[in-house]
Amino acid sequence: MFTAIFGSVEQGIIYAIMALGVYLTFRVLDFPDLTVDGSFVTGAATAATLIVLGYHPALATAAAIVAGFLAGCMTGILHTKAKINPLLSGILMMIALYSINLRIMGTTTETAIGRPNVPLSNVDSLFTIFFGWWGNLGIDTAFNNVLASIGIDNMPKTWGTLFIMIIVTFSIKIIFDRFLKTEVGLAIRATGDNDKMIRSFSANTDTLIILGLGISNALVALSGALIAQYTKFADVSMGIGMIVIGLASVIIGEAILGTKTIVRTTLAVIVGAIIYRIVIAIALRVDFLDTGDMKLITALIVVVALILPKFLEKHKERTRKAKRRAEHKVASGQEAKHLA
């Protein structure tokens, strides 16, 4: 159990980067962007392909970010310049990326033009490079000794992934929070909030939407590139349902931590991504559920996360009202006694 949850926390914190991207489009820009299902794979495919072709994993990951940015910009251009409805722009881009992703991965082989997956089992990745340095520090043994002393004997193989991903994801969060407070960031937020108003303050909403979608999908692609290196393969179908997972993370996080400030909301999104993974891990340990049921579980989680806060709020209000009614009754009862 411990290992399963440990693994979900590791994954969750990588997927959190994708969830931040989804938060930017879905909440900040108010643009339901379905490009994510495609651009996540584009990131994974670009990174995996370049690594297999012998490029440094850091360069491969950087290229993945650029590829995601371009994919997002294309969706933005379809919407703002060709005036295609936001949902449809995203779907069109998602479907186009499917073929593009096959082509990208196809460059690793000479026998075919497209290729549905690229394994990374015998090559270096950002993680293996990092572990080379981390392994010499002896932190793993220290942590595992602590665990052993409290009676847990299923040790995780390394704490390195968790450690480096906390640093990476939170650095991104801090930069992201700060960006949303810059002049451009304020304009992007206003575009999602009241586009008529921001146009009357000399901001080009088309450019801001394109830029926002680009940044969002750059984050999604980075997340895809890291997941590919973490799981040691890229697959053309690894992005299916990614947008729903992103939404689930955003909605779960917001339901738990609230949306009072941006700093808090982005933290909520990260926490939401981790909780989502833990819930899935626990659900998959139930006997009659199969890995194939994961999407169904995801859909259920989103539905529950959407309904629960409203239900709780209603319940709270009902008890509040009932209490007031009771107090009122007591008060008027006493008054009646008084008069008598």
Partner: peptide, 22 residues
């Protein structure tokens, strides 16, 4: 958005918007 953020948007009307904190 907050009152000060709204004013920051108004403040940037005749300037080009960059990566300065609003």
């Amino acid at each position: 958005m907050t009152i000060e953020e709204n004013l920051a948007i108004a403040y940037s009307r005749n300037k080009s918007r960059g990566l300065r904190i609003g």
